[in-house]
């Protein structure tokens, strides 16, 4: 009985904190909305993301040639990532949030595939769900489809060589992938809107601390969720995972 009340009070107080910070109820992963970045920055992020697109398309082309079936699989991988971002995460704080699929996608399909698939998913999110934007596609791709997956994948591959248990590894990889995405987005916003007296870093501190309210719980819940998903995948779908390893750079998921 007591614990129920304690939980209720905890949830209520968390709600109040959220409200007081004007945190919105639907917390998607941080997409910078259409038109929020000035032209120079929007263009810069497109330029920065181009080599990664080139890398992704090149590596996918090499794999798809001679194996037309793989293309269909990739299409389904993209759709899977898109649908993942439309699902609702179980709420810890009371605000509803959506998984990014960054960590899961990176571990399953590899970072090269994610740079292209992620951009496609972001385009659809803008056009079908009115989330994100066309001019901010470069910036969003850079944070969500390049830095996030690379972080997740790097951590996953690195920790796999050590003695860290797999579930903790998956948790860290996906949670830190999410956090990396959110740090990069905050940096992108801070660069475009530096504070008048404290400059870029002051602005960065402001963005990162306010968005932490929604993004840190999101990263933790997504980390937990990815662990649960992985446990099932490893228990029941080992064969599929082995076949999927073809999609990745060196193989062996």
């Amino acid at each position: 009985m007591f614990s129920r009340y304690a939980k209720l009070i905890l949830i209520l107080s968390l709600h109040l904190i959220l409200l007081s910070l004007l945190a919105p109820p639907p917390a998607y992963a941080m997409h910078i909305m259409e038109g929020f970045l000035p032209l120079g920055w929007a263009a810069l992020w497109f330029i920065l993301v181009l080599p990664f697109w080139g890398w992704g398309v090149k590596s996918l082309k090499a794999k798809v040639s001679g194996q037309p079936g793989l293309k269909l699989l990739l299409g389904f991988a993209g759709a899977f990532t898109f649908v993942l971002s439309a699902l609702k995460l179980p709420s810890v704080t009371g605000s509803c949030s959506h998984p990014t699929g960054v960590g899961l996608g990176a571990i399953l399909f590899g970072p090269a595939a994610m740079s292209v698939l992620g951009a496609i998913v972001l385009l659809f999110q803008a056009l079908l769900l009115a989330h994100g934007g066309l001019t901010t596609l470069g910036a969003n791709t850079f944070s969500m489809a390049v830095v996030g997956p690379l972080t997740s994948y790097g951590i996953y591959k690195f920790l796999k060589k050590t003695k860290v248990p797999l579930s903790f590894n998956v948790f860290l990889a996906s949670a830190l992938g999410d956090l990396a995405t959110y740090v990069v987005t905050s940096l992108q916003l801070a660069l475009a809107f530096p504070a008048p007296d404290t400059g870029i870093w002051g602005s960065f501190a402001k963005f990162i601390s306010i968005f932490a309210v929604t993004q840190v719980p999101l990263a933790i819940s997504e980390g937990l969720l990815t662990v649960v998903v992985f446990n099932y995948l490893f228990a029941y779908n080992k064969e599929e995972l082995k076949e999927l390893a073809v999609l990745q750079e060196k193989g062996g998921a």
């Binding site: 996918l60 299409g75 993209g78 759709a79 898109f82 998913v121 659809f124």
Partner: peptide, 8 residues
């Protein structure tokens, strides 16, 4: 990939 992702 765009078309496939969209359809699927």
């Amino acid at each position: 990939l765009l078309t496939l992702t969209y359809r699927f």
